[in-house]
């Protein structure tokens, strides 16, 4: 016992940021250690969107209203949908953490209080980045190509991760507001209609006009359209304002969502003490 004394660790102003970074990294490592403990689950998590891609690319196929090569249209759509579905993974993980006492221990320790959420974000973003690389590799294997050079390629991945980042904070907020296993299940079901009410798989041109309008304004459609442009893949077409300004919306939508849900989630986390 005597080896470590309770010398107070009130860090100097400069080192406070240092500790915040160190604590966040420790929390990120915690998630990485979780993956190492359940490799099967990680692999299944990576393979599920691949399976979806193959299923839509080869079994269901066609792509209603899509001109040209459907698989070239589908791959950016599935990448977008995978990012959006990350919401449920984040919500599930945060819900599980809050349901156990371990968050109480974090909150009763002299660590940076934001590190819990930062660690979650970094880990989820890392997992999503790996997921994107796996998906693009599989897409490449089934004949999908990008035609606009590496800068555009990286720009497309950036837009996809930006969407994921917005979904991350929505997921954290939902877990804070309604973090029960029942609610997680409800959200896991609800992301499907939201995901499919986009141009990820089918073109709005094939839909009734009112539905097509909803679909074109879906944040997923904006990201998918912008990513298709950057990859040089065939787009969904359409002459609405939303379709014409997909690049702008692909940035504005996620930024707006983060602007709303990031402060809400952080406030919720702080208010755990009320």
């Amino acid at each position: 016992m005597s080896a470590i004394h309770d010398t107070d660790t009130a860090p100097a102003a400069g080192s406070r940021l240092g500790w915040a970074v160190a604590d966040s990294w420790t929390m990120t490592r915690r998630e990485l250690a979780h993956w190492a403990r359940r490799p099967a689950q990680v692999v299944v998590g990576l393979l599920f969107p691949v399976m979806m891609l193959l299923m839509f690319g080869f079994l269901i196929g066609g792509g209603r209203g899509v001109d040209g090569d459907f698989r070239a249209y589908l791959v950016p759509g599935m990448l977008t949908m995978t990012m959006a579905f990350g919401l449920e993974a984040t919500m599930l993980a945060v819900t599980q953490d809050l349901g156990k006492g371990v968050v109480d221990r974090f909150r009763s320790m002299p660590m940076n209080s934001g590190a819990v959420l930062v660690g979650r974000s970094v880990a989820d973003m890392l997992q999503s980045a790996v997921g994107l690389l796996v998906m693009t590799a599989v897409g490449y294997a089934v004949g999908w190509r990008w035609h606009e050079g590496y800068a555009s390629f990286l720009g497309a991945l950036g837009l996809l991760l930006l969407l994921r980042f917005a979904m991350l904070w929505i997921g954290i907020h939902l877990a804070m507001v309604a973090g029960t296993p029942d609610m997680v299940q409800a959200v896991q079901i609800l992301v499907w209609p939201v995901g499919f009410l986009s141009n990820a798989i089918a073109s709005p041109a094939s839909m009734p006009p009112w539905l097509g309008a909803v679909v074109e304004w879906n944040p997923l459609s904006a990201t998918a359209t912008a990513v298709r442009g950057l990859f040089g893949n065939p787009g969904a077409g359409g002459d609405s304002w939303a379709a014409a300004h997909a690049g702008l919306l692909a940035v504005a939508w996620p930024v707006a969502l983060v602007a709303v849900f990031f402060p809400l989630a952080v406030k919720r986390f702080r208010d755990l003490g009320r």
């Binding site: 660790t9 860090p11 500790w19 160190a22 604590d23 420790t26 490592r29 915690r30 250690a33 979780h34 403990r37 359940r38 156990k100 006492g101 371990v102 109480d104 221990r105 974090f106 009763s108 320790m109 002299p110 660590m111 590190a115």
Partner: peptide
């Protein structure tokens, strides 16, 4: 603090837990 619910990460090993808490205690 030893709360009513086990305040440890059940997925990790015992040593991983203590090391993590040690790091978070700086």
């Amino acid at each position: 603090l030893l709360g009513q619910n086990a305040a440890v990460d059940e997925e990790l090993g015992g040593r991983q837990n203590l090391e993590m808490f040690g790091r978070l205690h700086h």
